[in-house]
Amino acid sequence: MTILRVRGLTKRFGDNEVLHGIDLDVVAGERIAILGASGSGKSTLLRCLNFMELPTAGTVELDGKTVGSERGGGRIYRERDLTGVRQRVGMVFQQFNLFPHMTAAGNVMEGLRTVRRQPKAEARARAEKELARVGLAEKADTFPAHLSGGQKQRVAIARALAMDPEMLLFDEPTSALDPELVGEVLTVIRSLAEEGRTMLLVTHELGFAYHVATRVIFLAEGAIHEQGTPDEILKSPKKDKTRAFLAGHRQFSF
């Protein structure tokens, strides 16, 4: 079952076209790793999928319904449309972006309380469950300032999970972490993969992508350059740019 269908997705910042007409179908349960050099548009692609950035042209279809409404040849996106989409497409950021004035549990409850209007006890119970899932049950009442980077990112993952998203987007989730903290976050993401969750992951951890992804997309200059299974792309890439990119990441091991 295709849950996300992207057609002709184009994004321009001023005169600079970052994405040139991306087509992408995501089937439920797929785990897609998006690779590419910096400036290839991989983060922008991800951010267009939950409308952190509004596409300049093209369409994003979620569960068979195209997001936004047509007007004058383009599309307009009302806040109401987008808040609905974002609840179904969770996102985890490179910089965690936890709410510093709320405890870990407060962060995880926030969407349930404010957006879903759930009673406090119910939201709290859910938050504790999600924090336990990421291994942070005992940190429920800790403020972000007292958490390590890896713990912060795990709380951010719990915050996204609490909304029961159909799909999760990870935007370089371990790039801001000290090397010794990367493992704990990857372990959590891997456990989500084992549950069969649909996810798109922009990452530089090629080894992780190889083991966890069901499909790898290599993006170059704002277009999908090459895609296939992890074996096809990471072990026997057909195109020169993909080879050159991988050659620059030789340190990764399977």
Partner: peptide, 15 residues
């Protein structure tokens, strides 16, 4: 990033 995190869990501008 605070705006983005709020938006990412489905909050509107006012929320």
């Amino acid at each position: 990033g605070q705006w983005e995190a709020a938006r990412a869990i489905g909050m509107g501008w006012g929320q």
